[in-house]
């Protein structure tokens, strides 16, 4: 007897979600807004969490939540492999499978009463956008609220227009690795923006996401300015299959990223990231 797609199914069974909206962000990246197909409870989301997105017959990929956690499920996906390409090709109304959400969340509460920094590299802005929405919501409880964002080229900047709108209420600095003259903004590696950002290291909490080397250099730039390592948080990723802590793939030394992460404190995770091929 077929089990209907409800919460009574086990955690390895995907729930059907339909594509309600679809937007192309860059040449290879799309943002999808998903809603439970045929009704059903929306997911309870926290910034930093991820779901396992299933494209029928193709497979699953772990994708971070990238919308407002108080709204519908939103994912920004980069088409880099067979599964992500299939997900990105899902048209309006198409049904994808969703498992989760899994993992822990960015400790946005820790930033309140002080300064907050969001530092993103490339598609790393996607898992951090929910944090920015929280910061905007609680702007009055923050001193400085800083967003530093870097990508490869101007045309690869995510949510470009939205990021510009954030400038009204947040301290925003954007840079690219290289550009032609049509770009009138900064050119340089994103971690370089930390030195000139206006914030008080003594009361700052930082949230960083992007390629590991980018996260490391950004954390080092923050440490150089006197931000405590325990107040710097990064989001890690590894091969993920189950999301439940049962398959073993996402191990990084002592931790299972799907279960104990993906968000980690820099002081806890820096030694692990320093061991090659761990």
């Amino acid at each position: 007897m077929a089990a209907t797609a409800t919460e009574t199914q086990g955690p390895m069974a995907p729930r059907p979600f339909a594509v309600a909206r679809r937007k192309r962000e860059t040449a290879d990246t799309w943002t999808l807004e998903l809603e439970p197909a045929g009704g059903g409870e929306p997911l309870a989301l926290a910034p930093g969490q991820f779901t396992m997105l299933y494209a029928f017959g193709s497979g699953e990929v772990p994708i971070s939540v990238s919308g407002d956690v108080e709204g519908p499920l939103v994912h920004t996906v980069r088409a880099v492999g067979a599964v992500s390409q299939a997900v990105c090709a899902a048209k309006h109304g198409a049904v994808l499978g969703v498992r989760g959400p899994f993992g822990n969340s960015w400790p946005v509460e820790d930033a309140l009463g002080g300064d907050a920094l969001v530092i993103a590299g490339g598609i790393g802005l996607a898992p951090l956008r929910p944090v920015v929405y929280e910061l905007l919501r609680r702007r009055a409880e923050l001193g400085e609220a800083v967003v530093l964002y870097g990508s490869r080229r101007p045309e690869e900047l995510l949510y470009a227009k939205e990021v510009e709108r954030w400038r009204k209420r947040l301290q925003v600095d954007v840079t690219v690795d290289a550009a032609d003259r049509s770009w009138t903004g900064k050119v340089g590696f994103v971690a370089k923006l930390v030195a000139a950002a206006r914030f008080d290291p003594a009361v700052a909490t930082a949230f960083i996401c992007g390629p590991e080397i980018m996260m490391r250099t950004s954390a080092e730039a923050l440490l150089e300015r006197g931000v405590a390592a325990e107040r710097i948080h990064v989001s890690l990723e590894r091969n993920m299959q189950c999301g439940l802590g049962h398959c073993g793939h996402c191990q990084l030394g002592p931790t299972l990223i799907c279960r104990d992460g993906p968000v980690y404190r820099w002081d806890e995770v820096a030694p692990l990231m320093g061991v090659r091929e761990l």
Partner: peptide, 12 residues
């Protein structure tokens, strides 16, 4: 660091 092209499809 920029030369590493970290944001490239397989560098990310």
């Amino acid at each position: 660091l920029r030369l590493l092209d970290l944001y490239g499809r397989d560098g990310d």
